[in-house]
Amino acid sequence: MTDDRTKKIIRQIKVDINKCSGCRSCEMACSALHADPKYSSINPARSRIRVYMDEIRDLYVPVRGGAYTRTECEGRSRYTLDGKEYPECSFCQASCPSRNHFKEPYSGFPLKCDMCANDPSLSEPLCVQVCQFDALTYEEKSEEMMADETRQNNDLKTLVLACESLVKKHGEKKVMKAFLQLSKH
């Protein structure tokens, strides 16, 4: 088994919402690093991390920007943690149509956390470096990954399986016809 597996470093930011003091230094630092040129401007609205804050209800949640999504969710779920109720939106990483979070304020372009791994990679993400309360901590985990060749083989196997189920549902003729149409595009 070990032959077809390789090691991969997983970079993680751990968030402890009880330790967050709401200073938003993480937002400041993130916007500075991703400015062009680096550190040339400050603007928390451009940050790829934001602290969802509600002083009245004592809610402090640092969230990193994640995937871009073209549709908005219902957003009506509420989560209770340690007796405090959080709106679904406070935990959500998405840049979605229903809110302005994780979007460039001028262009509307989605903003996604890159773990400060680009140009060149920092030893640990800047938001973690600037957080003095350990609300954000950095972890590197080494995880075993399948070798590329094995993964490609596995991908192909999955694809075959998917095609088989399509055939099963729609019949061979329909599936072939669909493929034919696709190939004309």
Binding site: A32, A35, K38, Y39, S40, A45, V130
Partner: peptide, 20 residues
């Protein structure tokens, strides 16, 4: 949601990281 521009970006940021 506007930028505040910094005259000497890297020098200021590094000094501030130390101050933090």
């Amino acid at each position: 949601t506007k930028d505040i521009n910094i005259a000497h970006p890297e020098a200021l940021f590094m000094a501030c990281l130390d101050l933090h």
